[in-house]
């Protein structure tokens, strides 16, 4: 069953990456999707990552109760945790819920109301026209959102630490500047790129092959989010194991 779906998914992707009928129309769609996926998710990412950064700072401070450990370590751990794991993965899981369910229901609704059939009858490559702009927008915007999420989480840590008194702002800033390894950013961006692909392609697959009516469209959305989240976590492990 899993292999059947995986095979269908690969075949769909082969259709998605066929040569577009007209680049101009596809480019317009890509910019539209970049706005939907990127700008449309910005507020959510800002709020969630800021709070995660603040909470992380408090929890790290809570666990490092020792006179032997300098409080600058709190900033350092918070920075690396956010760059390597929390920034990309939490953002991806949140976006899987928001963007993924939206893509699945949008394409699924088009399927059950015969709009996809109408595209195919016209001679348009429906997978390419509907899914390619979303995938391209996802893999472009996801790294941008992850960089913003990491920045907000680090700032959130500063604010949270200062407000609660868990760590002094000067110690925190000194901590986030110390022992920085630029390769962690590369790992974060690779994760973001892969997650951007999963967030857009898995729900698109579930929506594209939905059969039935409104109930099945809803079920496809839920399945897309569940499968997408599992795929994100599995890929997170594989990328981390390969790159670190």
């Amino acid at each position: 069953m899993i292999f059947h779906h995986f095979g269908k998914y690969v075949l769909l992707l082969r259709s998605v990456f066929r040569r577009p009928e007209k680049w101009k129309i596809y480019l317009k769609e890509i910019f539209h999707e970049m706005n939907e996926i990127g700008i449309g998710s910005l507020g959510l990412i800002l709020i969630i990552s800021t709070f995660i950064g603040a909470v992380m700072t408090l929890q790290i401070a809570f666990q490092l109760v020792s006179d032997l450990i300098p409080s600058t370590v709190i900033g350092q751990i918070n920075r690396d945790s956010n760059i390597l794991e929390l920034g990309p993965t939490i953002s991806a899981l949140v976006l899987m819920g928001k963007v993924g369910s939206s893509i699945s229901s949008q394409i699924g609704s088009m399927r059950v109301t015969e709009q996809i059939d109408a595209l195919e009858i016209m001679g348009v490559n429906a997978p390419g026209y509907l899914i390619l702009p979303k995938i391209v927008a996802g893999i472009i915007m996801m790294p941008v959102l992850v960089i913003i999420a990491i920045f907000c989480a680090i700032c959130g840590g500063l604010i949270g630490g200062a407000m609660s008194g868990a760590v002094a702002p000067n110690d925190y800033i000194q901590g986030i500047q110390g022992g920085f390894n630029g390769f962690t950013i590369v790992v974060a961006l690779v994760k973001a790129f892969i997650f951007g692909f999963i967030i857009t392609s898995v729900p698109a697959y579930k929506g594209f092959y939905v059969r039935g009516g409104a109930l099945e469209v809803g079920q496809a959305g839920t399945q897309a989010v569940v499968i997408g989240c599992i795929a994100i976590l599995a890929c997170d492990y594989i990328i981390t194991a390969l790159m670190l």
Partner: peptide, 18 residues
């Protein structure tokens, strides 16, 4: 595709792009 560009189709529920 070359044949389909010569086809027009009216669907049962119209299937207009929403």
């Amino acid at each position: 595709v070359s044949i389909r560009r010569e086809i027009g189709m009216l669907f049962q529920n119209s299937a207009l792009f929403d």
